[in-house]
Amino acid sequence: MTTQQAVASRAVRSRLFWPVITLVALFALNVIVSPSFLSIRVHDGHLFGSIIDILRNGSPTLLVALGMTLVIATRGIDLSVGAVVAISGALACSIIAGSPDPGSVNTVLVAIGVALAFSLILGVWNGLLVSVFGIQPIIATLILMTAGRGIAMLITEGQIITVSSPAYKVIGGGYWLGLPASIIIAGAMFLIVGLLTRRTALGMLIESVGINPTASRLAGVRARSITWTVYVFSAFCAGVAGIMISSNVTAADANNAGLWIEMDAILAVVIGGTSLMGGRYSLTGTLVGAFIIQTLTTTVYTVGIAPEITLVFKALVVIAVCLLQSPAMQERLRKRRATTTTTAKAAA
C-alpha cells in the first residue's frame, strides 16, 4: 500500500470523514441552486452572506450541543435543554421588560445574570436526580423537559414578551468586530471547552466515567461529581442559547423558544461521531454536526423543498450519515476495498 493509499484509508476510517463529506455535499448543492451561496460581502464594516447566516443561526444549536456532548460522554442524555432555553429567555426578557430603564446596560447584565443563575440551578437539579438519586438520565431530564415549558409560561404569564433594548439585541442580533456576536460567543465557548477538556485531565476523566463509572470510582475518580458537573454545564449552555435566541428576536416565546432544539443537539452530537453509549467524544465532530443540521435547514429553503416535508428531508440525510458511520457499514466498505485491491493486484 502506497503512502497516498494509507492516508486515504486513514481518512475514510476517521469519524469526521462522512460528516465533512456531507457538509461539503450540502454546500455544493446550494451552490448549484444559488451560485452566490458562498459569497461574503462587507457592508458598514459587517460581514453578510449565506455562510454567515448559517454560522449565526447555528450558534444556539452548537452551544446546546457542546453541553450535550459532555453529558452523552458520561453515558447520559439531557432532554431538558429546550425547556431551559425557554426559561432563560423568558426570565431575561421579563426582567428587562419590567425595568424602568430597559435600555440600560446594567439592566441587561442583571437580566442575563439572573437567567444564567437560574439555568445553573436547573442543571444542579438534573445532576442531583442523576448522580445522587440514581434516576436514569432520560427520565430525570424528561421531568424538567415536561415541567420547564410550564415554568416558562408562568414567567411570561402565557404571553409573548417583547423588549426594546439595543444592549440586549446585540447578543443575538448585533455585531462585534464585524462578525455576528452570536458567532463570537459560540466560538469562544467552543475554544474554552476544548482547552478545558483536551488540555487538562478533565476530558479523560469524563470519558472514563462514560466507559465504566464503577471502575472509575474504584480508581479514585469522583464519578458522581463529574456527572453532576456535566449536567450543570449543559444547563448553562442552554441558558446562554436561550438568551441568544430571545435577543435575536427581541422577544420571549415560552411555547416555541428552543422547541426541539434538544433533538437537533443530540443529532449533531451523534452525526459528529460521539457514541450514545458514552466514552470517547469529539467536540470537532459536534461542531461539524451542528452546522450540518443548520445547513440542512438552509438548504430546504434554498432548494425550495416544501416546509411540511422539511423534517423528513432532514431525517433522510441524518439516517444516511449515521448508516455510513455505522460499524457494520464500515466493515462492508473495508471488505469491498480489500477485495478491489486484491483483484487489482491479481490483474496486474
Rank of each mutant, 00 (worst) to 15 (best):
S234A: 14
A347F: 05
I226M: 05
S131C: 10
I52Y: 09
L259C: 03
V221Y: 01
P60W: 00
T250E: 14
Q294V: 13
I226W: 00
A201I: 12
G158E: 09
T286C: 11
F133A: 09
V300A: 07
R334L: 04
I161H: 07
S104R: 04
G172A: 09
P137A: 11
D78H: 03
C237S: 08
I40V: 15
N212H: 06
T197S: 11
P307K: 10
I96W: 05
L323A: 14
I185R: 01
I271G: 06
R332E: 03
A306F: 00
L283T: 11
A6P: 00
I96R: 06
A188L: 13
D253S: 11
Y281H: 06
S80M: 01
I139H: 03
L154F: 01
T197M: 09
W18F: 14
V312A: 10
R199T: 13
I309D: 02
F48N: 09
V318I: 15
L196F: 12
I309H: 04
T107G: 05
G158Q: 09
T343R: 12
T2V: 01
V269P: 05
R334Y: 00
A92G: 10
G278T: 02
T200S: 14
L23F: 13
R149V: 14
G67I: 11
G203D: 06
A235H: 06
D53R: 13
N248T: 15
S326L: 07
A320T: 15
V130H: 04
V240H: 03
G49S: 11
D53T: 15
F133L: 14
W176K: 01
T61H: 00
I293V: 15
G278R: 01
T302F: 04
E331Q: 14
S99K: 07
L128K: 03
S9P: 00
T302W: 00
R337V: 05
T297S: 13
A252L: 11
T74H: 01
L91Q: 07
V270Y: 00
A186H: 04
R149A: 07
R224Y: 00
A315I: 04
L79P: 01
T69Q: 08
I95Q: 06
G58R: 12
M145L: 10
L267E: 07
I293A: 08
H43N: 12
F17Y: 12
S275D: 03
Q330T: 13
Y231W: 01
F37C: 05
A115H: 02
R217L: 03
L218V: 15
A238D: 10
